[in-house]
Computed example of a mutant assay.
Amino acid sequence: MRVGVLTGGSDCPGLNAVIRAVVRKGVQDYGDGFIGFRDGWRGVLQDDTVVLDIPAVRGTLPRGGTILGSSRTDPLADTDGPDRVRKTLSRHEVDALIVIGGVNTLGAAAVLANQHGVPCVGVPKTIDNDVSATDYTVGFDTAVRVATEAIDRLHTTAESHQRVLVVEVMGRNSGWIAVHAGLAGGANCVLIPEQPFDVNRVCDYIESRFKATYAPIVVVTDSALPQEGEVDLAGLSGIGEWLGREIERRTGYEARTTVLGHIQRGGTPSPFDRWLATRFGLHAIDAVHDGDWGAMVALRGTDIVRVPLAEAVAGLKTVDAARYAENEVFFG
Rank of each mutant, 00 (worst) to 15 (best):
R42T: 11
Q46C: 06
D47H: 14
T49D: 05
V50S: 02
D53N: 14
P55G: 07
V57R: 04
R58Q: 10
G59M: 07
T60W: 05
T60I: 00
P62N: 14
R63G: 01
R63K: 15
I67D: 05
G69C: 02
S70I: 11
S70M: 11
S70C: 10
S71V: 01
D74M: 05
P75D: 08
L76F: 06
D78T: 15
T79W: 10
T79Y: 10
T79K: 14
G81W: 03
R84Y: 06
R84F: 05
V85M: 01
R86N: 01
R86C: 04
R86G: 04
T88Q: 03
T88L: 02
L89Q: 04
R91H: 13
E93L: 13
D95S: 15
L97Q: 05
L97N: 02
L97S: 05
L97M: 10
I98K: 09
I98A: 06
V99P: 00
V99F: 02
I100D: 03
G101P: 04
G102C: 06
G102D: 09
V103P: 00
N104Y: 05
N104I: 00
T105F: 03
T105S: 12
T105A: 13
L106E: 10
L106F: 09
A108S: 14
A109T: 03
V111H: 11
L112F: 07
L112C: 09
A113V: 04
Q115W: 12
G117I: 03
C120N: 09
V121A: 10
G122I: 07
T126F: 08
D130N: 13
V131E: 09
S132A: 15
T134I: 03
D135Q: 11
Y136I: 00
T137A: 12
G139D: 01
F140V: 01
A143F: 06
A143Y: 10
R145T: 14
R145S: 15
V146I: 14
V146N: 00
A147G: 07
A147M: 05
T148F: 01
T148Y: 02
E149W: 00
A150V: 12
I151A: 09
R153K: 15
H155E: 11
T156I: 13
A158H: 08
A158M: 12
A158F: 08
E159T: 12
S160I: 08
H161K: 14
L165I: 15
E168G: 02
V169K: 03
V169D: 09
V169P: 06
G175M: 06
W176L: 10
I177D: 04
I177E: 08
A178V: 03
A178L: 08
A178M: 03
A178C: 10
V179Q: 08
A181T: 12
A181E: 09
G182Q: 03
G182E: 04
L183I: 03
L183H: 07
A187M: 06
A187H: 01
A187D: 02
N188R: 14
